[in-house]
Design a binder for these strands. Structure first.
Length: 529
RNA sequence: GCCCCUGUGGCCAAGUGGCAAGGCAGCGGACUUUUAAUCCGACGAUCGUGGGUUCGAUCCCCACCGGGGGCACCA
């Protein structure tokens, strides 16, 4: 239970009432599966069996069982007693012998349930057959292998651990309705192996990233999600109200500014993997809440971040898939370092065949956009125009991992000016499969310069731009104390997982993606106690 | 916001302007080595919701709701 939850409404009473519905004779045939199972639960209680017992002491996982007994030959039987637990995924009744598949988080094993073995009480065997596909069950039995070579537990006793009142989807086809898959992810995960695989990829990848960062001496930190100001990126924020202080707060849109305050404080190497929130549209690449990694390293610049990005992505790929090679939409992509490095201006020339750069006169840059059929807006300088060409015509076409260096200063308010070209900043993005996967800077640490850029943004906000941020005076004050030179990196974890899992929609990699409220599900759909 | 596609028992899924296939699951029966077990039998559907056209609509039209995709917006 969530610690802050109020006391449970039922006051902890376990005094269960009568059966939900008396199902006599033929009525049971016509009753819904759920009603039948509710009746079953009531019957068990009447017999003194708790259908929701408190615990079951298994002595190993099914994976461990397979590990230990995988070598047995077909037909071999042992006297080794084991206790395993899991969800009943299949049941094959065959007269006085029943086979079932039991699954836990580590794998599946067959249950060999014989009337003779389960005795002496003849009710016991009938009781096993009363179990339904989907029930959570604990069993004790001996390890054996059937004639056909299937590792099995010959069950000597069993216990219902939790009743499944709703029938699982088709045992072969699983759950196909995407709406149901996202809304009822618990069912999706239960019956669709692909769904489980995607999240295994996710957990392995994120874990590998953490390990690699820790190995490099990075400290994992947690910073506020409720912010008094909007900053760290350009995006429309969610606004909520904090009653105790009677102020509006913003859900964070980035992790950047608090982490850089920690650089001022001397942490030198920090990272955070956390949820950020952007009040924008939903599509195959955007979910309003998504997971971001940001990492900052003192005394380095963006060149360190290239190597770090390569290492993190490669480690994540190997941990998730055992290889750096992934298949994406029929194409093979190799994430093994080193990746290609190229400047934005060079890459535009290569892919589009035109020259445009942030140093050229604005009119000239706009003329390039005109020739390419791209729209520009008043107020766009050559830098913004260059970025537009890159976004529209270059990024979608780059498949293999590519480090795109040296972005226009105009579109990068938190990056440090380029040491050799005042029109640029020291920033790179990594593109894989036509998508931005990572973004890194030599971090701007000049408080005077930073304040000027904040003020520009605040002016935009005052002019009605909901994505422009506020002047964060405390952040400026922090910079005035001195932030060491640093490289910083951001990786969109969800998009990385999409690449590693080879899926095309961000919803496939988020356990509970944001959806409209479900209609029609209400109190009337659930039984009285 | 706009456009296209889509919604059929718990799940999967056909279908047509004229009584809504089939499979899985569930229910009853047979079966002690099955592997999506098999065989036999009976049951289960206001075809997303509301209007309209029609003698008659699951099907055609309109609106709304949910979902998917694209565009736009947006990093």
């Amino acid at each position: 239970m969530t610690p802050d939850d109020p006391a449970p409404a039922d006051g902890g009473s376990h005094d269960h009432g009568s059966a939900p519905e008396d199902l006599e004779g033929g009525a049971e045939e016509r009753a819904s599966i759920r009603a039948q199972r509710l009746a079953k639960v009531a019957r068990l209680r009447a017999e003194g069996v708790d259908p929701y017992p408190y615990r079951f002491d298994r002595d190993r996982t099914i994976g461990e069982l397979r590990e230990a007994y995988g070598h047995l030959e077909a037909g071999e039987e042992t006297d080794d007693v084991v206790r395993v637990a899991g969800r009943l995924m299949l049941k094959r009744e065959q007269g006085k012998l029943t086979f079932a598949q039991l699954r836990d988080r580590s794998g599946e094993v067959q249950l060999f349930v014989s009337a003779k073995v389960l005795g002496p009480d003849p009710e016991a065997f009938a009781g096993f057959n009363e179990l339904d596909r989907g029930d959570w069950v604990g069993v004790e039995g001996t390890v054996m292998v059937t004639k056909k070579g299937e590792l099995s537990v010959k069950v000597t006793s069993f216990e219902l651990l939790s009743k499944d009142l709703r029938p699982l989807p088709d045992k072969w086809k699983g759950l196909a309705d995407v709406d149901a898959r996202y809304r009822q992810r618990y069912v999706d995960l239960t019956v669709n192996p692909d769904a489980r695989r995607v999240f295994e990829v996710r957990f392995a990848a994120v874990d590998a990233i953490r390990q690699e960062l820790r190995r490099r001496g990075y400290l994992e930190v947690e910073t506020p999600i409720l912010n008094l100001q909007q900053g760290g990126a350009t995006a429309r924020p969610f606004v909520t109200h904090y009653n105790a202080l009677d102020i509006d707060t913003y859900l964070r849109i980035a992790l950047e500014l608090p982490l850089k305050r920690l650089m001022v404080g001397g942490f030198e190497r920090v990272f955070e993997i956390g949820r950020v929130f952007r009040n924008e549209g939903i599509d195959t690449r955007h979910n309003p809440e998504f997971t971001m990694l940001e990492a900052y390293e003192a005394f380095g610049d963006y060149t360190e971040m290239i190597e770090l990005t390569e290492a993190l992505v490669a480690a994540a790929a190997v941990a998730a898939n055992g290889t750096t090679v992934v298949e994406l939409r029929g194409q093979t992509v190799d994430l093994a370092p080193p990746w290609r490095r190229v400047t934005m201006v060079e890459l535009i020339e290569e892919v589009v065949g035109v020259h445009v750069d942030p140093g050229m006169p604005t009119a000239e840059a706009r003329a390039v956009l005109d020739r390419l059929g791209l729209a520009w807006q008043e107020g766009w300088g050559a830098g913004r125009c260059t970025h537009e060409v890159y976004d529209e015509l270059v990024e979608p076409k780059v498949m293999q991992p590519t480090v795109v260096l040296d972005h226009p200063r105009e579109t990068s308010p938190l990056a440090k000016p380029h040491r050799r070209d005042p029109n640029l900043v020291e920033r790179f993005e990594v593109i894989v499969d036509g998508r931005e996967l990572a973004n890194a800077y030599s971090e701007l640490n000049d408080p005077v310069e930073q304040l000027a850029r904040f003020r520009e943004e605040a002016a935009h906000k005052a002019a009605g731009d909901p994505e422009a941020g506020d002047v964060d005076y405390d952040y400026i004050r922090a910079l005035e104390y001195g932030m060491p030179p640093a490289g910083g990196l951001g990786i969109g974890i969800d998009r990385l997982i999409m690449v590693l899992a080879g899926v095309e929609s961000i919803r496939e990699v988020i356990l509970f993606p944001t959806l409209r409220p479900e209609v029609g599900l209400g109190d009337g759909d659930f039984p009285e106690r």
